[in-house]
Amino acid sequence: MDSKPLYFGKIVFAVYYKNPFGVVLFMAKVEVTKELIAKVAKNARLNLTDAELERFVPQIKEIIVDSFSKLDEIDAKEEPSFQPVAISNRMRKDEVKKGITQEEALKNASAKLRENGYFKGPKVMK
């Protein structure tokens, strides 16, 4: 993606997203299609309208192809960083601490989603 200068008023508003080769020399290995995005959205329990799909597909494709897939350029044999600083062995003793009461637990649930001390939820059988 080349530099894209946008002129607004007196300030030059230039956004560079620099591709080191100047031009896209490689093709990202993934094919980002409408079907793929619809499938991923469904997995994440998002119902996308046709309009949303139309809008999202080019946006998401751009991000995956022009940004995410840049990582294909380099080799990385390093260990993955779980956190950016080294932390390990955080555990606690097996002791019970006073929790919250049933009423406190239910407090944030709407009146419709409570019943006799239980939370109410949607059914599991189709």
Binding site: L71, I74, A76, K77, E78, E79, P80, S81, F82, P84
Partner: peptide, 8 residues
């Protein structure tokens, strides 16, 4: 890959 690149 991103997790490894992060270390780099």
């Amino acid at each position: 890959k991103a997790m490894r690149v992060r270390t780099k």
